[in-house]
Computed example of a mutant assay.
Amino acid sequence: MVVAAISLGACAQKTKPVQDPFKGAISQPLVRGMYTADPSAHVFNGRIYIYPSHDIDVKVAENDNGDHFAMRDYHIFSMDSIGGEVTDHGVALDIKDIPWAGRQLWAPDVAYKDGTYYLYFPLKDKQDVFRIGVATSKKPEGPFKAEPQPIEGSFSIDPAVFTDSDGISYMYFGGIWGGQLQRWHTGAFEANGSASDLKQDDAPALAPKVARLSTSMLQFAEKPKDVQIVDSQGKPFKGGNHDQRFFEASWMHKYNGKYYFSYSTGDTHFICYAIGDNPYGPFTYQGVVLKPVIGWTNHHSIIEIKGKWYLFYHDTQISKGKTHLRNIKVTELRYDRSGKIISIDAYAGAK
């Protein structure tokens, strides 16, 4: 017994305590009562509203198609200021109330026009193909009522709607792997197509899509176009440029008259951005907005309120690293004098 005790003591002395990877987190989860991700933030009537995904633990094995991201409804959150109390407005839209629903309600976005709020959401239809739907409400917090059919001509995931100063709205969308963007490269859905284009390093990288919305905000006013992201020499990225090429999570905002298109590199987990002179681009790559977070995916939104800019994002602090059980966060975003975004490390407090 004494020998065993000495042996255990020796082992204990050699074992180093496990460090908390979130110890240096620069911000804390905004919501703790449930898992939330992919935060799309907007300012309506002077109040901040957040439209995230609602992660749930369905005990589905993780795979490249993202079957373990089996979300079924949306909750909307709001706060009167950054750092203020967060209000959960409850279920704004449930998959059972969407007539064409199959499965998986992924990252949404919202736009406002003429007294109506429009919730745009990706959802697999009954043939297991991702389409983009729209639901409406007279209140930013909902509840929202879904249209009977998805937007005609829509596909893939991650809708992000930007309304320019002239009142015209544009939807940016697309995501590779489970988001199915690669299955549309010919213009028609290929059910048995490649699971990904990420091994085609010398081919042009798949591009995100953009389409102007109709005046009703319920349909596309045009066929979706490629969003071209180029390097400083004006050359489009190749598929092998995994640290800079588009993967998913489009977002658009405007700063000092320029259009800032930001996105996730997906398999390398950077949030990057590129700048253009109009909503269609081309957009010239500038750098990294947010370095990789703990939890595989990286998805964001950027807003201005009261003269300051903020980045909303997610990681997996509450679930301690489980990739499909995430939590939304926010931190201040800053620009340098030339208009470049100062890159953010979500765990800089540990250094």
Rank of each mutant, 00 (worst) to 15 (best):
Val129Ile: 15
Val129Pro: 00
Ala101Cys: 08
Asp109Phe: 07
Lys139Cys: 08
Ser165Asn: 14
Phe121Asp: 10
Phe155Arg: 12
Val161Asp: 05
Glu147Tyr: 07
Ser165Ala: 15
Phe144Thr: 02
Gly133Trp: 01
Pro99Gly: 05
Val110Phe: 01
Leu105His: 04
Leu119Gly: 06
Lys126Trp: 01
Ala107Gln: 07
Ser154Pro: 00
Val91Trp: 11
Ser137Gln: 08
Val91Glu: 14
Gly167Thr: 03
Asp164Cys: 11
Gly133Gln: 05
Lys138Asp: 12
Pro140Leu: 12
Lys145Gly: 10
Asp97Ala: 09
Pro150Phe: 01
Gln127Lys: 15
Lys126Cys: 02
Gly90Asp: 11
Pro99Phe: 00
Asp128Glu: 15
Ala92Phe: 00
His89Asp: 12
Glu85Ser: 14
Val134Arg: 04
Ala160Cys: 15
Trp100Glu: 05
Asp88Ala: 10
Gly142Phe: 02
Ile95His: 05
Gly84Arg: 07
Ile168Val: 15
Glu152Tyr: 08
Glu147Ala: 15
Tyr120His: 01
Asp164Leu: 11
Gly115Glu: 01
Ala107Phe: 08
Glu141His: 12
Ser137Asp: 05
Glu147Arg: 13
Asp109Pro: 05
Tyr118Gln: 06
Gln104Phe: 11
Glu85Trp: 04
Lys126Glu: 13
Asp114Thr: 02
Asp94Trp: 05
Lys126Leu: 06
Asp166Glu: 04
Ala146Ile: 06
Thr87Gly: 03
Pro99Glu: 03
Gly83Glu: 13
Ser154Leu: 04
Tyr118Ser: 01
Pro150Gly: 11
Thr163Asn: 06
Pro143Arg: 06
Ser154Trp: 05
Arg103Thr: 14
Pro140Lys: 12
Val110Arg: 07
Ile95Asn: 02
Thr87Val: 15
Thr163Gly: 02
Glu141Ala: 14
Glu141Lys: 08
Ala107Leu: 06
Tyr112His: 15
Leu105Ser: 09
Glu147Met: 15
Thr116Ser: 02
Thr116Pro: 09
Tyr112Cys: 10
Ala111Pro: 00
Asp125Thr: 04
Ile151Trp: 00
Asp88His: 06
Ser156His: 11
Pro122Phe: 02
Tyr120Leu: 06
Gly83Gln: 11
Gly83Ala: 13
Trp106Gln: 08
Phe162Val: 05
Ser154Phe: 03
Trp106Ile: 09
Glu141Ser: 14
Pro99Arg: 01
Asp164Ile: 03
Phe155Ser: 09
Ile82Ser: 10
Pro99Cys: 00
Phe121Lys: 04
Leu105Asp: 05
Val161Gly: 05
Pro150Val: 10
Lys113Cys: 10
Trp106Pro: 09
Phe144Leu: 06
Val161Tyr: 01
Phe130Asp: 10
Gly153Phe: 10
Lys113Gly: 07
Phe130Glu: 08
Tyr117Asn: 02
Ile157Glu: 07
Lys138Arg: 13
Ser165Trp: 09
Trp100Thr: 01
Asp166Trp: 03
Pro99Leu: 01
Tyr112Thr: 10
Thr87Asp: 09
Gly133Asp: 13
Gly83Trp: 12
